[in-house]
Design a protein around this nucleic acid. Sequence first.
DNA 1: CGGCTACTTGACTAAGATCAAGACTGGTGG
DNA 2: CCACCAGTCTTGATCTTAGTCAAGTAGCCG
Lengths: 222, 222
Amino acid sequence: MPEMNPQPCKTDQSEVLSLFARHSFEQHFQTNSTLLLHGEPADAVYLVASGTVRCCTIDADGSRQIFSFQRKGEVVGITDMDYWHFTAEAVDHVIVKSMPKSILEQELAVNVALRHEIRAWVRGLLAERERQLLMLSKSKGPDRLLHFLQDYAAKRPTSGFVVLPMCRRDIGDHIGLSTEAVSRAFSHLKRAGLIELKSCEKYRIVDDPKGNLAALPNIKPV
Amino acid sequence: MPEMNPQPCKTDQSEVLSLFARHSFEQHFQTNSTLLLHGEPADAVYLVASGTVRCCTIDADGSRQIFSFQRKGEVVGITDMDYWHFTAEAVDHVIVKSMPKSILEQELAVNVALRHEIRAWVRGLLAERERQLLMLSKSKGPDRLLHFLQDYAAKRPTSGFVVLPMCRRDIGDHIGLSTEAVSRAFSHLKRAGLIELKSCEKYRIVDDPKGNLAALPNIKPV
DNA sequence: CGGCTACTTGACTAAGATCAAGACTGGTGG
DNA sequence: CCACCAGTCTTGATCTTAGTCAAGTAGCCG
């Protein structure tokens, strides 16, 4: 996608991180517990120290759209001012560094570099959401899954197998598919030789010497 | 949708608007011309004075995702800092008030109220995109169209018929449907008595005394 | 009046949701 | 240690939705 920045959220975060280093305290959340709930007062900011967080909106009828997963070193909740406009939950056991929002606000008033950092940060998030909208409306299931797996692997500098902490349903709510469709998309990519699956949660993107990737749209399930 | 703010973008914009009042000049764009192009330096900010602007990302293969339409009184381009991350085009003949970005940046350095305004603005955009992601992944075509038409009508205080300046293809690229599917969705809503169509571009949302709206999922084409 | 464009409708096809059943996994208790 | 259970993942069958191709219609402009 030539119109997209490959890494919309990779901005300098030294100011934010140094704030966390000075003013945060550790907090634990067990699997599937809620870090912050839509509509509640936004009184803190979080830096994930361990585990995975999912950020989502949940509809009246239970429909859920997960718009991002946060892992170690990633920040949650920096966009909101008074009340949370989304819900954040623990995918597995999560440890975060929690900082009172008031400290961030005080620092924002006097620190130009921090302001720029956060502005760039939020702009990146916006670009990412718009990229997701394009994916969701124009790409088919297997393409969306492959894209997600590539993105996810790219953030981990490991060259070996990548471990997915979240279940199929979480992935489905992220890329807009049912649990079953996610499973089928995995099989699809595996059969097509685009990914290797060691188990249902360990995968590796196959380097693409034969140009299989370009042929993806034509692959048919057996 | 209880987890959503009904009007995420309705924030106070007095500071931005007063800046435009003092420092902008008028610019005209003819139908389908480009206001700003993805990747170009972001050197100006725009306030729509007349006409409609579409903001979108365009993929290598021509896929286009329109994530918003801007009308009179709405601002374009305030989120980006150095380079545009999207493309803006004129849906019909457009007149904008254009302001050099440098003026905005200078004012941002000294004006706390302006900073808050823009922060709230961008946060609202982010919430809107996340709401769109949910719509796109969980709602069916006619639902999405109805939602768009309601949103669009809500911004116009007219109680009569609303005029759509954009074509079916534009609507389709906004709500994730083909031109034909948009047309079918219109017919669908009309048959179901949820909207009135005076012509293909003039519509009115029907007040819903019989609770037809709740029955929408069951409506079948004849 | 003719021709262009946008819109609508129909027929067919493909992608994915849903329903249902079977396979694998990890944890528990006999 | 093994049988059982619950939850997750996978696969199959069927149905709905929407994309595609194609034809026809309605406005609009020259």
